[in-house]
Design a binder for these strands. Structure first.
Lengths: 168, 168
DNA sequence: TATGAAACCGTTTCTCT
DNA sequence: AGAGAAACGGTTTCATA
């Protein structure tokens, strides 16, 4: 993966609806080699998928929360069952095991506070937990799905991507 | 927005590389009306954008962390400058003001621990902070960009989307 | 608001450098 | 590896119900 591949990825992370010809123009390549590079990036799993990002408020989700969980002192099997159950909860978008003074972090969306309370009740009844903290989002200050490729190993620091000039 | 629109959105959130004809087939519509609905969902801002999702490890990001920040007792202007500075830090993917015993939550990616230390030093020198907690991700248990539309107001509970049958 | 046919344009393949 | 031309297929428009 070279600098041109990284440029392509930076563009596709920002807007995957551009045509191959437009992307090629932006990275200084004609459509065929640009298309071949994209195919390779998809085949090798660097590009995992292409998705549509929705506006949570426009589909009725008013609450998003960060939840930290400290597990009680339970056996491996209990914790594994907990993990499977949490993974299956649709309101959980992100779920990770972490190192620190908590064991798990979750990012949760719900329609409103009563729905969150219902979620919370279901979560805490899965297994006895030592501590659970919920942080409700008051203001979304930044939300990115794009990885900062300018910081990736091998990247020369680059300026942000300019739109391809309309006049060519 | 009706049940068909929600079906379309559920599909597009999962895989935005499907053709309009395929999506139409999955929701029981021919391509033209399906295409019109997608256009409307884009125009109204329900669909914010289409993006490529990359594999962090394949581009060299080995560390992702959740960082909680409790602000010191500072004036509005100091905090606003802090917010602007954090928004500009490329390693910060998510950044929100929250209610609870911390003030801000961040989701951060870096190449490795030394790079995280560098980030941490820059973050903590922006403004005196009362407390900063970092939780390093040990295991990604779930990672979704798709909102759980089955829980959205107005949604009848629906089964997961089946792939359109290969044979037609 | 849905459909099918047709026009248009982007993607994919092929050939050549 | 990259370029350009051609074939293919998906998108977008149009006419119609």
């Amino acid at each position: 993966m070279d600098a041109v591949d990284r440029k392509i990825l930076r563009i596709l992370q920002q807007d995957a609806s551009l045509t191959v010809a437009e992307i090629g123009r932006a990275v200084g390549l004609s459509t065929t080699p640009c298309w071949k590079r994209i195919q390779k990036l998809e085949a090798s799993g660097v590009i995992r998928k292409r998705v549509a990002i929705l506006a949570p408020d426009k589909v009725g989700f008013g609450v998003t929360a960060q939840v930290s969980v400290q597990a009680g002192d339970h056996g491996r099997e209990t914790v594994e069952a907990f993990i499977v159950a949490v993974q299956a909860m649709p309101e959980v978008l992100e779920f990770q095991r972490v190192a620190g003074d908590v064991d798990f972090c979750l990012r949760v969306v719900t329609v409103d506070i009563p729905h969150f309370e219902d979620f919370y009740r279901r979560l805490t009844s899965l297994m006895p937990l030592r501590r659970v903290s919920s942080y409700f989002e008051l203001q979304q200050l930044k939300s990115e799905t794009a990885l900062p490729l300018a910081l990736a190993p091998g990247a020369r620091l680059q300026a942000p991507i300019a739109d391809p000039a309309p006049g060519g």
